[in-house]
Amino acid sequence: MINKMELKFSASLSNEVLARQAVIAFISPLDPSLEQIGEIKTIIAEGVSNAIIHGYELDASKDVFLKAIIDGEDLELTITDYGKGIENLEEARKPHYTTRPDLERAGMGLTIMETLSDSFAIKTLPGMGCKLVIKKKITHESVAYGTVSR
C-alpha cells in the first residue's frame, strides 16, 4: 500500500521540530528502530535547516515543502525550497564546505544526508531553489547495529 503526506510550513527554525515529528509519526506503522528514527530525524533536520538558513536566509515569510511517501518498506522524502539555490553544487557537496562559517556551520549537512540515505538526489538552480529527494528503506532485517532483528 502507498501512503502519502505533505507539509508546508514557514521558513522558521522553530518549525524544524514539526517537520521531524510529523515524519516520525507518519512512518510509525513501519515500526522503525530507534537508530532508524534518529537517522531519519537527522536527514530531515539537515534538509529543512538548509532550506531555511541557506535557501531563504531565515526569511520566515517564505515556505518550506516536505513530502513523504511510504511504499511498502520504502520511504521517500522530498524537501523543497524556492530560495536562492546552490551556485556550485559540486563545491557545496564537499565535506566541511559552508558558505556560513559565521554561524558556526560545520559544512557536513549534505554529507550526512547522503551517507544516511540509500539514495540522495539534489536538483537546484541558482535563484530558483533547491529540491532534495531522499530514499531510505525501513527494514528490520538490516541489522546495521548488531541489534536483535524482529
Partner: peptide, 14 residues
C-alpha cells in the same frame, strides 16, 4: 542525547 545534526557538530567543533 536522542537527536543531533551538523549544527550540533558545529557547536562542539567551535
Amino acid at each position: 542525547l536522542q537527536f543531533i545534526d551538523s549544527s550540533g557538530i558545529g557547536l562542539i567543533l567551535g
